[in-house]
């Protein structure tokens, strides 16, 4: 009798555990749910300029948006400084080049 009860119990347990195929999952569904986080990761890694609005759009995330905004602004200011340096540098070179050209031409004309 005891053996029979154990057998029935094992069978019920076995069926309850194997009734749903727990070793499988919907990979598309997982990718869909994780997608916006992946997008945010790419944005972060790309070190691109992005706005607070972009972050709000991407997020719905728990961690402090103020902190993210700070990180965002830091990145923006870093990138901004580099960009400004490049613009000033390039502008300076252009002015120098045009100046040389002007001097060259003026010398040519006045000679």
């Amino acid at each position: 009798m005891k053996t029979l009860v154990t057998l029935v119990f094992s069978l019920i347990l076995h069926l309850s555990l194997f009734s749903n195929n727990s070793f499988d999952y919907d990979r598309d569904e997982v990718q869909r749910r994780i997608h916006h986080l992946t997008t945010l990761e790419n944005v972060y890694k790309s070190n691109a300029l992005y706005s607070f609005d972009d972050i709000l759009l991407l997020s719905g995330l728990e961690y402090s948006k103020v902190e993210m905004y700070t990180i965002n602004n830091l990145q923006r200011s870093d990138n901004g400084s580099i960009a400004l340096g490049i613009i000033i540098g390039a502008g300076g070179c252009l002015v120098l080049y045009l100046g040389c050209l002007l001097i060259g031409y003026s010398q040519f004309f006045f000679l």
Partner: peptide, 16 residues
């Protein structure tokens, strides 16, 4: 490492 969590209660996280 990257850890991405989409929680059942609507709280999402990303950690790098």
């Amino acid at each position: 490492i990257s850890i991405k969590e989409v929680s059942y209660d609507g709280i999402n996280r990303i950690v790098l």
